[in-house]
Design a protein around this nucleic acid. Structure first.
Lengths: 249, 249
DNA sequence: CGGTCCATTGAGCTTAGTCAAAGAGCGTGG
DNA sequence: CCACGCTCTTTGACTAAGCTCAATGGACCG
């Protein structure tokens, strides 16, 4: 992505998800790359279902280095709604976007490794002009998050179960692609049908039947923890998915 | 709200919605109040249904001084989803929150007056420490917007038509209250049932029947362009609404 | 081998959507 | 002043997408 990375000492050239995500969003200097590489130095691991953050637990910002998480809210009677998914390279909380209170919690969906992003936050906030690449990347991350939330609203409000499922899978495909987790149109799918149901506003049973229908239609396969896109054209058309337009300012 | 406002020349003491909104969010100095008052000097009016902004029309940030607007997205076959409502005192686009591309447009739901918020944006971005009150207020505006979007997702994903309607009306009540547009639990309701339907992910007919049921249950009245809250307790309980906790940091 | 978690299937039901038509309110122009 | 045209609301009858309940099957693991 960036010729300058060739200048880095070898020990830093094994990139983490944050490096991949950010350097796909903006040109980064050697200094900036180093800050991201060093995220891997202060990490903590979590188990599936473990809570990564909640409103009453303020902490320094975190970035997901590996694993999947979600932001969710639970109603009084136990109904759960997943507001958004967080993938490797995504900020978990507190980066640029101010800490959001409310009744949301962030929960691990798989095993997760978080990095402390304090130094990144400081770099971007204290002297943005010193780190133009990181500043831009963080700004773009925030934009992507907003767009993804808008997509979620449209899915839930105006799409059928079938459309919602295809649309969400396309979004995951696009996001995983930016951190090189899509190979030959195959990407990992660690979400259970229950999680998909709570994200798409459907019942588990209906998620199951919808997936079967999609499979039968031959536009994708869901099997053994991974998804294979078989007919991207059809998927785009019938779900009204709008890919993010590469680079914008 | 702020003793210093007594020091302002009389011509500035007639406050606009931006002054009310912001000064409810943070203590503002005389200078800061002046910036907000002066928003009223450069305005433009729009008619209902007029487009206030879209992605291909970048412009300086705007604030709504009067009228209601919404951010919406339209699917290929014409289905529309309203993502969020924008009320007097709300930023219309481009303030703090970076300009969001994608397929969203901002549309006037009533007659609307927008103010150019360039000076405000400059004040907050160029020298935040000079305008701590405005900086904090703008940050909080952004937080509220995020919370409101989360609410929208939960409504659409996991609530019944009845709950959605009550929940949305409570949100509008709360937001209008911050700009003194609620008097004795009565507030203006310029939204048609079609608009409510597109916001709540329902059909017009079902919105109509839901409103009738709510009326019959005696928890609120919707009549002649205004809403009267009759039983706040019941509304809060059965819609799972969480009021924003006054002040937080 | 039993337990646990997840996926799958069937049957019946409910919420909400669709279609179609009729009122109600309002501004405008004859 | 009334009639019209427009937009918005209301009603009825029917339909359908998606939900609930309940049971079964499959994979993995101690």
């Amino acid at each position: 992505m960036n010729g300058q990375s060739a200048l880095l000492p070898r020990k830093y050239t094994q990139s983490n998800a944050a490096v991949q995500r950010m350097s796909a969003l903006a040109e980064l200097s050697t200094d900036e790359m180093l800050i991201l590489h060093n995220l891997s130095r202060q990490t903590r691991s979590y188990l599936p279902r473990e809570e990564l953050w909640n409103e009453s637990k303020p902490s320094s910002p975190r970035i997901i280095l590996s694993g999947w998480a979600c932001r969710q809210r639970t109603l009084g009677d136990g109904r759960r709604q997943i507001v958004s998914f967080m993938l490797p390279g995504d900020p978990c909380h507190g980066l640029e976007r101010p800490t959001i209170p409310g009744t949301c919690t962030v929960v691990a969906l798989t095993a997760v490794v978080l990095a402390d992003a304090k130094t990144l936050e400081t770099a971007v906030n204290v002297n943005p002009s010193l780190y133009p690449g990181l500043t831009r990347a963080v700004r773009l991350l925030s934009i992507y998050e907003s767009l993804s939330l808008q997509d979620q609203v449209v899915r839930l409000g105006r799409q059928t179960a079938y459309e919602r499922m295809v649309h969400l899978l396309l979004e995951l495909h696009e996001r995983l692609d930016t951190v090189d987790m899509v190979i030959n149109n195959v990407f990992p799918m660690p979400l259970t049908q229950e999680v998909l149901a709570d994200a798409l506003g459907l019942s588990i049973v209906h998620v199951n039947r919808t997936l079967q229908q999609i499979r039968r239609d031959g536009i994708l396969e869901v099997r053994g923890g991974s998804v294979t896109i078989l007919d991207m054209e059809v998927m785009l058309a019938l779900s009204d998915f709008t890919p993010v337009s590469g680079n914008f300012e």
